[in-house]
Amino acid sequence: MQESFSAVDEVDLALINALQVTPRASWAQLGKALAIDPATAARRWERLREVGLAWVTCVLGPALHTYFCMAYAEVACEPARLDAAGDFLARHGSVRYVYHLTGSHQLLVASSHRTPAEVSGHLAQVLAAAPGVRSYRAELRTVGFGESSRWRLRSLDAAQRGLLAGGAVDRRGGGSAGQSPPALGSEGAYQELYQLLQEDGRMPFAQLARRSGVSEPTVRRRVKLLLDQRLLRLRCEVAQSVTGWPVTAVLWATVPPEQLDVAGRALTVLPDVRVCCALTGPRNLMLVVWLRTLDELPALEARIARQHGVVVVDRAVCLRTVKQMDRLLDADGRAVGFAPALLAPAAAQQGAEQEMGDTGLSPADPA
């Protein structure tokens, strides 16, 4: 396994980059873009996935982002029980990320919930129950300006990106606070596909159909609908240690409220920024960045501080990522376990019980 881990070459990285752009691209499309045989692309991907260096998963899409609460908790732990606390929290279904950080709060825990009341229950029943937790402070995300699925390796040239562009659909739109989520129809079918695609976002349609107990054309229609309506989003993840950007840092900043939206959108386009979101509390902007070296952090911080009244008031370096979305990671960032989300937010409102297949979509439409 160690031999496979060390044998990551430029073709592997280009393949991962291509799947970041088009997570369910065919092997033929990937082979054409990378100038390799489709069978070679499939074999290389299977090796990367088997050793936990890369994987395709599924997350809730932008159309649902305003219908759930994302909480970020900074947790102070007893030193001797830090690992136990991190492992305990990482295995909980509502927890998306667990970072072991420098600073006075040793863990940063990101979790998603349907309501603020559920956040309260999580803090009281899960976070406070974790072994060795001394204290915590939590804030809610108010606006997400940029998410991790935007981040890309830079292994493809312009021509290769052009060959893949047909599979990368720009799906605009999304919900606004107070509106109902887009009607999906059968919520049970939605939940099941969400969970299967979390397990493997490239799971073949035939296997998705077999495991969900419906026909393959129906699965194709449902997956297309979920992606087209931006209810779900597929994303290719990679072990950070092989990316060339092995350092994670978290920055907290203050921004005048009237400048927050402009600053957040400006910072999101910086190539090293993976997450940029507004928070409740006096530190109203948080960024998660990936860097090539630790000494890049001061220069990046200075660049951030030149944006629209942004004042960086605290920073921490991630010593280890314990969980990244639904994967448990080892010290090298390889996926070694699976702890998926318990449930997605309700996607169907009352009166929307019709089958998702009744959408006018052709069974032949690709996902």
Rank of each mutant, 00 (worst) to 15 (best):
M1Y: 12
Q2P: 01
S6N: 14
A7M: 14
D9Y: 10
D12Y: 03
L13Y: 04
L13P: 01
L13V: 06
L15I: 05
L19C: 14
Q20F: 06
P23C: 08
S26G: 15
W27I: 02
A33L: 09
L34N: 08
I36D: 12
A39S: 15
R44H: 12
R47W: 08
R49W: 09
V51H: 02
G52S: 04
L53Q: 12
A54H: 03
V56C: 10
V56H: 03
V59G: 07
P62T: 13
L64F: 11
T66P: 08
A71K: 03
D83L: 07
A84H: 11
G86L: 04
D87G: 07
R91Q: 14
G93M: 11
G93I: 08
Y97C: 13
T102Q: 13
H105S: 12
L108P: 05
A110N: 09
S111I: 09
S112F: 02
A117R: 15
A117P: 07
A117L: 13
S120V: 13
Q125V: 08
A129W: 11
R134P: 01
R134L: 13
A138G: 03
F145S: 01
R150E: 09
W151T: 02
L156C: 05
L156G: 04
A159K: 15
L163Q: 11
L164Y: 00
A165C: 06
D170V: 14
G174V: 07
G175W: 05
G178A: 11
S186C: 09
S186V: 04
S186N: 12
A189W: 08
L196S: 03
P204V: 09
F205L: 13
L208S: 06
A209Q: 08
A209N: 12
E216K: 10
V219C: 02
L227G: 03
L227D: 06
L227S: 05
L227Q: 08
D228A: 15
L232T: 06
L232N: 05
R233T: 11
R233Y: 08
R233H: 12
R235F: 12
E237A: 03
S241P: 05
T243F: 02
P246H: 10
T248E: 11
V250R: 00
P257I: 01
P257T: 05
E258V: 10
E258H: 10
Q259K: 12
Q259I: 03
A263H: 05
R265I: 01
R274D: 14
R274P: 11
R274E: 15
V275S: 02
C277E: 10
L287S: 01
V288S: 02
L291K: 05
L294C: 11
L300R: 05
L300I: 07
E301F: 03
I304S: 01
A305W: 02
D314N: 08
D314I: 01
A316C: 07
V317Y: 02
V317C: 10
R320A: 10
R320V: 07
T321D: 01
T321F: 00
L329W: 00
R334E: 00
R334G: 00
R334T: 01
A335D: 01
G337L: 00
G337T: 03
G337S: 04
F338S: 07
A348W: 02
Q350K: 12
G351T: 10
Q354Y: 06
D358F: 13
D358W: 15
D358L: 15
D358Y: 12
P363A: 08
A364G: 06
P366S: 11
A367M: 07
